[in-house]
Nucleic acid binder design. Structure first.
Lengths: 334, 334
DNA sequence: GTGAAAGCGCTAACAC
DNA sequence: GTGTTAGCGCTTTCAC
């Protein structure tokens, strides 16, 4: 239905150059006659246009495209960041191409290469592994790169993340203040630097509260999943012979698994277990327990990422590999 | 770091053609000498390659890219379908480009045009509005199109969706069997054909169970959100002066809003309210209520979509605008 | 005011 | 066996 530039040129009798000029809004700059503009505009209004972006990209060496690599798009946190980032991109005429690395460094690397080969104008990466020393920047095309969520010490690009350490510290402190005399932290994926930050915050809070070593437990599992949470809770319960009075979970999936284990062994989740968790779910509110939730601000994160990215894409500033830390919100439910 | 074809040609002393042939694995077909292959392969192994996909796409008129338009990527159902679809695409060397329409037909149309202009080889659409009579198929490039989730009667492309009618019928029947003598269906977005199917299934079940008109209520709100659920539950409670004995919600968001209203007005969600809902959330299991959940099979949906898409992309079959209906699972919790 | 022409980096038919 | 060459559809400089 919609016409290509050549088709419009042929139909209106003008050259491709002229069509391009009026379509790109530079008609007056190139002194295209009002008459020509009107004829072309009328034709376009009637038939529509479709510019072959591939040809355009090849010529201009830009693609109006931003790549986004997340560990897992099915993870609610990343899905929300994606939604916000996509909205910001759309408003600037950019297309966001999101892809998952599945926490696999090899897949992540392939995704980076694939997006770079496709000529994305910018790349946002929630890394599942430390950056390779020499980032895959091909043929001098110095694609802007922003990292989010996880800060590896050796990162050579700007990083934007939530304040994992402080939020873990706060949530732990609140749980203790709410009566948690013993507390267990169930972590998925402990080599992830965000989790390490959380562990540090947790440790600090329990030390400050004067909890003794036997009142504090730190469990971890190699992956972030309900199964991992289920297994860790199993460990905890078989060691203590009962449900722990308070659990902090590194993710909703881990929490889900942990709750499932308690329900499985005890018939129900004891109402007096104090729960702390990272990332919000609308149904948390209806658990009968006391629940403390660390909520990241996905919208602020998307905005911070996008601002930095636009800056770099317009080449305004040199790339400075600093870290931007976003505050989180602690919500108390039930 | 990685080299372009021209760079490899220059460095190895072979022509671009020769390089292309060995890189595309058609070396023997083009009778490239073993020696040349070895030299080129060695160079590539050391330095890496990066083929400019833009140039390649322009020449070949394919992009190894599939477009996917969903109402909202932050919706867990679509996020899961996306994750599965992306995995299938990756396995075939395709990149999935996902974008949200935000339930806005205008945004949806722009998204379609944008993806088509970028030359996607296939398009998957969860439509938020009936297809336009003349689909935006530009310049004869007859891009395969698959519709999912929602079937509009006038659709001219294959549709894959869950069995919304039957699942609503079943869940309603089970709720009634579990003791729901009165039941309310809270629907977001009632002009969505999936919701209409569900309403039909619901109606059928209440008629079959012999519920009288005053025992059945059907509420709807123009959007699918927690706010809508909150408002509908408000209506329900102020009319009856108490919590309804059973509610069926068209989505998790609506359920969340409805529960929040009950909690707000009564201090807590009454434990004896029987709950029915569409789409699963890991925390549903820990509500103290009886909960019936209709679970769609996102993986099966992704697979069905992908199979059809591949068929069409390889031109094996004529496009027949039929409907594929996937079965759902009814889960009883609590 | 408008158009001709070069060329973006690749592929593939064809020539040698 | 390997290289030459003609484009893919667009943008943009420069000539008229």
């Amino acid at each position: 239905m919609a016409k290509t530039i050549s088709e419009i040129a042929e139909a209106t009798g003008y050259s491709r150059t002229t069509i391009t000029m009026v379509l790109s809004g530079r008609a007056s700059q190139y002194r295209i006659s009002a008459r020509a503009q009107k004829i072309i505009q009328a034709y376009v209004d009637e038939h529509g246009v479709t510019i072959n972006q591939t040809a355009r990209n090849l010529k201009t060496k830009r693609s109006q495209t931003v790549g986004f690599i997340v560990p897992d798009i099915a993870n609610a946190f990343f899905a929300h960041v994606t939604a916000h980032l996509e909205g910001l991109c759309r408003a600037e005429g950019l297309v966001l191409v999101t892809t998952s690395s599945l926490e696999d460094p090899e897949t992540e690397k392939r995704a980076i290469d694939s997006l770079l080969a496709r000529g994305v104008d910018g790349l946002v990466l929630a890394p599942c592994a430390p950056r390779p020393p020499e980032p895959s920047r091909k043929r001098g095309r110095n694609t802007p790169l922003i990292l989010i969520d996880r800060a590896y010490p050796e990162d050579q690009a700007p990083v934007i993340s939530s304040n994992h350490q402080v939020s873990a510290h706060l949530v732990t402190r609140e749980m203790i203040a709410a009566g948690a005399s013993r507390i267990a932290f169930l972590c998925g994926h402990p080599d992830n630097p965000s989790i390490q930050d959380r562990i540090e915050g947790f440790r600090k809070a329990v030390v400050e509260a004067g909890l003794s070593d036997e009142d504090v437990q730190l469990l971890s599992a190699p992956e972030d999943s309900a199964e991992a949470g289920h297994a860790m809770m199993g460990q905890l319960m078989s060691a203590a012979g009962r449900a722990p009075p308070a659990i902090l979970c590194s993710s909703l999936l881990v929490l889900e698994g942990a709750l499932k284990r308690m329900k499985g062994e005890l018939g129900a989740v004891p109402r007096d277990v104090i729960i702390g968790t990272f990332d919000y779910d609308g149904l948390l509110e209806f658990l009968p327990n006391k629940v403390f939730v660390v909520q990241q601000d996905e919208e602020a994160m998307a905005r911070a990422v996008f601002d930095l990215l636009l800056q770099q894409m317009s080449g305004q500033k040199a790339i400075k590999p600093g870290r931007t830390i976003l505050e989180t919100q602690l919500v108390h439910l039930g």
